[in-house]
Design a protein around this nucleic acid. Structure first.
Lengths: 232, 232
DNA sequence: CGTCCGATTGACCATTTGGTCAAAAACCAA
DNA sequence: TTGGTTTTTGACCAAATGGTCAATCGGACG
């Protein structure tokens, strides 16, 4: 996909898609996430929700504009009135995602009780998996395929935050308040375990059968796991 | 994709692709994985290896026959001489995968030392992530998107094996030889943690920076984690 | 050396798909 | 009601893509 046989006219520097094609060129910087009209706000939201559904289920290439349009109850050209391209929809979704996704880690409080803070982090992360499985899968799809549209964000925003919180965790470990484990890998293990329940949902349900509630059980299991791991 | 606007002639009952189009129709049952000629064996292997590379990196829909052909150094029609369709290549890869993937769990020995057995299982699983990251990602791609081509296998082969080994683990727990944890979730956690290092490789490297060796570090970390979790 | 059969491919084809566009419809302020 | 501005869409288009096929190539064996 990337830079395929360059099209007639270079499109890299067209509109950003943050505002419909026809809109007046005022308020350029401001109001980008502040659509001018009620209807714009509603339709953009409708489209993004439909796109999340479709992208998370089929991946970027597997999703078609027609599927998204149908899901959104709009016509294809109408989608492209609100977003300049399929990729623009995807990118919008991805950047929204990063924010939500990192919130639980941001909330890790250096001044709180170490064990309680980390257990709460696990719980918050698992809540995201429970309530936003589509986002989790969208993210997984992107990362598994090499994060072609997110690498920049990973190496900057994400790394910065993780390094910062890792330092906090390391301090806790040095002070003997939690066991001495590698903070980065601790964070990775939290991601791996919590996201697994959203991303591999079908597999888990296939193995567990229909009578059980994976997410509910996971909460207790993960709490035990991290409590034992972190005890000084 | 599935059963899209039914094509002119139904294709469901064509050849299986286990043998090239032109091959004689003898030895039907036997020799399916025993290509007749040296060159057939070599080319099928070449194709599957190229396909693994491409599918694991782009997903089923994201991969094109041209990409696979180029990667394999063959022409597109030549690919389709060895496999009847793109999907047939994918399915072949997937079924090969299931076998390799479950081997480490099969090796879990009910008569061995519980802690040692489980630690060894983790180590074997991590080795798979290290040596076969492409397979891991192929699998992840498939599962994340709802396992459209694997559900049957998951609900039968996989469930059977997991249930069997879960019983073993539960016995160990009941006998007080390991901590009392839910065996299914224990297995899920092993999958989640080990596969994460293959599937989310880009993310991990982005956060860790280039100087570190994630997989090597993971071995120690996971050993610690499971040792602490399982201690009676 | 010729023959036969498996292997290979260039040229094609039908469908799908992202995207365009001009015109029509819906909205809205005066 | 009118005139201008957003929204919406039917009809298209070009490129990409999975797949076909007739024709050619190649090597092993008699």
């Amino acid at each position: 996909m990337r830079a395929q046989a360059s099209p007639p006219k270079d499109r890299a520097d067209r509109e950003t898609g943050l505002v419909p094609r026809g809109a007046k060129a005022s308020d350029t910087a401001m109001a980008q996430h502040n659509p001018r009209t009620r209807i714009q706000a509603k339709n953009r939201e409708t489209i993004l929700d439909a796109a999340l559904e479709v992208f998370s289920l089929h991946g970027f290439r597997g999703a078609t504009l027609d599927m998204i349009a149908t899901e959104a109850g709009l016509s294809k050209p109408n989608l492209l009135y609100y977003f300049p391209s399929k990729e623009a929809i995807h990118v919008t979704l991805l950047s929204q995602l990063m924010d939500t996704w990192l919130d639980p880690l941001r909330d890790l409080d250096a001044d709180g009780d170490p064990i309680a803070e980390l257990r709460a982090y696990v719980r918050r992360k698992l809540e995201l998996s429970r309530h936003y499985p589509r986002q989790s899968r969208l993210f997984a799809n992107e990362i598994v395929q090499g994060a072609p549209r997110m690498q920049a964000a990973l190496a900057s925003d994400l790394k910065t935050l993780v390094d910062e919180k890792s330092a906090v965790i390391q301090d806790w470990a040095k002070a003997g308040r939690i066991a001495d484990v590698d903070p980065h890998h601790l964070i990775f293990s939290i991601w791996a375990l919590t996201q697994h329940y959203a991303d591999f949902d079908v597999q888990i349900r296939a193995v567990l059968g229909d009578a059980r509630d994976p997410l509910a059980e996971a909460e207790g299991f993960l709490d035990t796991l991290f409590t034992r791991l972190l005890a000084p």
